[in-house]
């Protein structure tokens, strides 16, 4: 509602894709376009992502945009204050997969408060499973864009993120040293290699345990 009690329509726009697909750049471009249209904007990102400066979001061309780094979106609203929040037209959310309260915040912001919310984040984790609650926004979003990166192994369009390390936790914040974008063929091939390696290592562990048991019993 605006000051006259007239309902102002909000919007939700989703920018999805694997690592290194340019989601942040696309978000900044949209935010800059909104600024040029004279709208009041604010950018929010998770304080979990400490790869770059905490108080700014950096795009691929080095363009910086000041932002709020918060643990959850409810605390952002509290920090900003009711009056300042009312003045806002557009809210940009980067690294959205890290926010647990993403769905509830976006729904209220768009449906009740009439804000335009532009959300950028990973759609899937390194196992190609839904990451965070970004995908839950699809039914209430006005638009959904899935960006592609470039497959590190063949140069074709890459839609998936592959983890190079053995860490199995979903939330491992990192860059090119830990993750790489890959196409479907190389994702599947990579998983086959990983699964085969695991199987070999596990069978060797079984053999090792059996040997140890045999040695201790004979001793």
């Amino acid at each position: 509602m605006d000051d006259l009690g007239v309902y102002t329509s909000g919007e939700i726009h989703l920018i999805l894709g694997p690592m290194f697909a340019g989601k942040t750049t696309a978000l900044i471009r949209k935010m800059q376009a909104e600024i040029q249209m004279g709208r009041r904007v604010v950018l929010v990102k998770s304080d979990k992502d400490t790869r770059y400066a905490l108080n700014s979001v950096v795009s691929h061309d080095g363009a910086k945009m000041p932002c709020w780094a918060v643990a959850d979106l409810a605390s952002f609203k509290d920090k900003l204050g009711e009056e300042a929040y009312k003045q806002l037209d557009v809210i940009g959310i980067d690294e959205a997969q890290f926010f647990k309260d993403l769905y509830s915040f976006c729904q209220v912001a768009a449906d009740k408060d009439g804000k335009t919310v532009i959300v950028a984040g990973l759609d899937g984790d390194y196992l190609r499973k839904s990451f965070g609650s970004t995908l839950e926004l699809i039914p209430i979003a006005n638009s959904v864009v899935k960006l592609t990166s470039r497959c590190e192994l063949c140069g074709k369009a890459a839609s998936f993120t592959f983890r190079k390390t053995g860490e199995t936790k979903t939330e491992v914040v990192g860059g090119a040293d830990i993750y790489m974008p890959v196409c479907r063929r190389h994702y599947v091939n990579g998983q086959i290699v990983i699964d085969a390696t695991k199987a070999v290592l596990e069978s060797q562990q079984v053999q090792y345990d059996t040997c140890v048991q045999a040695t201790t019993t004979s001793g």
């Binding site: 470039r150 140069g155 090119a176």
Partner: peptide, 20 residues
């Protein structure tokens, strides 16, 4: 228009930049 090479493909020996 003057874009940075923000992504270096280690295994593929490539550095990538792009613009819209």
């Amino acid at each position: 228009n003057k874009s940075g090479f923000d992504y270096v493909d280690g295994p593929a020996y490539r550095a990538l930049a792009y613009d819209y």
